[in-house]
Amino acid sequence: MHTALRTGGQLLDLHPDAIHAPVEVCVGDAIVPLGHLDETRHIQDVHIARAARQAAIDAGWFVLERETRFTFVTHFDTVESWLTYMAEHVQKAVIPAELVARARALLPPGMAGEVRIPRQIYAARLRRTDDV
């Protein structure tokens, strides 16, 4: 990727932070925290990726210009939608059985509400330096 960028080009590194994301159920005005996903595999991958990025900075290929964090919320209309989405798109995460049981109890089929995952995202801008 370093060679694909023009000198002075920018790298936007955007990924979920190295934490276990929380899960909530919202019914009416109530927001009930269920607990956290087990994202051990994801967290390991973040540490590996950040180490590789730091190596690129240390080698003089990039300079880190700015970092920020924000919350990315995914909303699911039912518990089954949440579980289906996780199985198809977030395979690194493990959903503790007690979270599923609590979600099913709080949001049974036919009840208006939603499951939410407010996930903290890390974003950084790096700039390619002159050739090293």
């Binding site: 990727m1 960028l5 023009r6 080009g9 920018q10 790298l11 936007l12 955007l14 990924h15």
Partner: peptide, 8 residues
């Protein structure tokens, strides 16, 4: 050297 921005 084809890109101004790379998005990960």
């Amino acid at each position: 050297r084809a890109f101004d921005v790379v998005v990960l």
